[in-house]
Amino acid sequence: MSKVPGAVVEQPALPGSHADGSHMLEEGHHHADKMGAKIGMWLFLLTELLLFGGMFLIYGVYRYMNNEDFHAAGQGMNTIIGAFNTVILLTSSLTVAMSITALQKGNKRLSITLLGFTIFFAVWFLINKYFEWSHEIHKGIYPKSPELTSRSPGEILFFGLYYVMTGIHGLHVIIGIVILSFMVVFIAKDKVTSSSYTKLENSGLYWHLVDIIWIFLFPLFYLLR
């Protein structure tokens, strides 16, 4: 097991032996509860998959029908800011995953710090998104703008999908920030602990899903050359 500076104590796995019948019963009950919460979370995530899947399908069909226009529209995209935001989100996924490990090892403070980093990266992502959208809007590219409506139908579709898909993704980032902030409070108040951390795990799952969506959005919108 890797040691991390600042690690206070390694909490032993639940004390008490398995010979203790009542204790096992309690664990069994706990197990089912956790399992249910996790299955529920995954069911929700799969509905999210369908939400974004539908939009990716629309993107796919329209790109198939307007390939040249999509490429023409993609030339104007800022690859650097897209790649940078990819790195930011991947790193935020790392820190949220590590915060769960930290809590499992009983290191409350490290867990909170890592969640803080995740929230910081999420905000940074949104700030970049703000500048990026501002730049596009400044260039006159926004839904129904005179500049955009003068372009080919394929380009209009590309930017329509760009605003809707990165917009709904951005909304998920905002929701993620709120959820992760709640987790910080819960850990600080010992509502989420090293022995009861399903809430944190499920929040992490949500955050990773947001990351996975971006992993697909990035090449489809920012890497058309």
Partner: peptide
């Protein structure tokens, strides 16, 4: 099982 949760190392992540 739950009494021994699988903890992923920082290094793996």
């Amino acid at each position: 099982n739950d009494s021994h949760p699988h903890i992923v190392n920082y290094g793996t992540y």
